[in-house]
Design a protein around this nucleic acid. Structure first.
Length: 343
DNA sequence: GATCATGATTTAGA
DNA sequence: TCTAAATCATGATC
């Protein structure tokens, strides 16, 4: 039996026609030739199409009339059959998406930076790592550390508030669509599976929006990080105490101002700077001292006095102060150069 | 804003 | 790899 015949059967069966007419194909043909059922269907379809042009009240009334129409169940069953065939043809097209690696990367990064997930100071760890990488002094790092954390907290707050908005919008839209589909399922065949599929489609759309949010959040974090690192790379003068410690060592070892690795480490520790900063400082100091000894003479004398006072204090307790770290303490020798020009 | 001071970086040589 | 030397970039001072 073809669709049209089946539909006609259903329509006539429910339309109050005589049973004989239903089972006799000739009588169906007769009816068709009369044009009455075709006109009915045409009218119904016309009415359905016209609903969208009407006001809400009119449409509701029309919908109610259509739902109560004597031919509605027949039309519904035909639609069911057509739908069944259509669903079969598209079955298999929809497949479960594997987890998107990009989303996974973004999620991991947001988690590592402390933007998503529990607030446990992930940002502090990142800030500490960045500060350590840049070799900043502990005091400076703590100041910028708090700046970094404050900015990161701001990003985190915006991210969560936006995420919440998206989730709410997604939920509202899903509910709306589900209600609409349930409502429509009274006039056309919609299976729960189809509703589920539609919900999945909506969720996919919203998750792509979420991915954009995650991407822009990651970008913001990266910019913040790079700014933080750049700031640390900026030149900062060492504090007075650190400069004094370095100068003291330099002038007390003027004959050989090349601290060993151990001495550098000790100086770095004392000054709160890195070993490479100590190396830089001695490199600069040697070359600048050598270039302008006269200019540094006053400074050298100053440290000579300072060391002499220190030595006098120590000599009160010991007959001679001769620390292994400062073998020449107690006086500053005149600068001497090796034949190759080294101090 | 000019100038100097100073920490960092780059380059070349041992 | 370390150092000297030159240079850059920024802070401090006037």
């Amino acid at each position: 039996m073809d669709d049209q015949t089946r539909m006609m059967t259903g329509l006539t069966g429910l339309g109050g026609l005589a049973q004989a007419d239903v089972v006799d194909p000739d009588s169906v043909r007769k009816q068709q030739s009369l044009g009455q059922p075709q006109q009915d269907i045409g009218d119904i379809l016309q009415q359905i199409m016209a609903i969208t042009d009407e006001s809400l009240d009119e449409a509701q009334a029309r919908k109610h009339a259509l739902n109560c129409h004597r031919m509605k169940p027949a039309l519904f069953s035909v639609l069911c059959e057509i739908k069944e065939k259509t669903v079969l043809s598209i079955r298999g097209v929809q497949e479960e998406d594997p987890p998107d690696p990009q989303i996974m990367r973004l999620d991991n990064m947001l988690l590592a930076e402390g933007v998503s997930g529990p607030e446990k100071g992930g940002g502090s760890a990142a800030a500490a790592a960045a500060a350590a990488a840049a070799g900043g002094s502990p005091t400076d790092s703590s100041i910028e550390h708090s700046d970094y954390r404050a900015k990161l907290a701001q990003i985190r707050q915006i991210y969560h508030s936006e995420l919440e908005k998206y989730e709410q919008a997604c939920s509202e839209f899903t509910n709306h669509v589900m209600n609409l589909l349930r409502e429509q399922s009274r006039t056309r065949p919609i299976s729960p599976k189809e509703i589920e599929r539609m919900v999945a489609i909506i969720h996919r759309k919203f998750s792509s929006i979420q991915m954009q949010l995650k991407q822009s959040t990651c970008e913001a974090v990266m910019i913040l990080r790079s700014r933080f690192l750049d700031a640390r790379r900026k030149r900062r003068n060492f504090n007075k105490q650190a400069t004094e410690v370095l100068n003291e060592y330099f002038y007390s070892h003027l004959s050989n101002p090349y601290p060993s690795e151990e001495a550098k480490e000790e100086l770095a520790k004392k000054c709160g700077i890195t070993v490479s900063q100590v190396s830089n400082w001695f490199g600069n100091k040697r070359i600048r001292y050598k270039k302008n000894i006269g200019k540094f003479q006053e400074e050298a004398n100053l440290y000579a006095v300072k060391t002499a006072v220190d030595a006098a204090n120590v000599s009160a307790q010991a007959s001679q102060a001769n620390s292994p770290a400062t073998p020449n303490s107690g006086g500053y020798p005149a600068p001497c150069y090796t034949p190759d020009g080294r101090l």
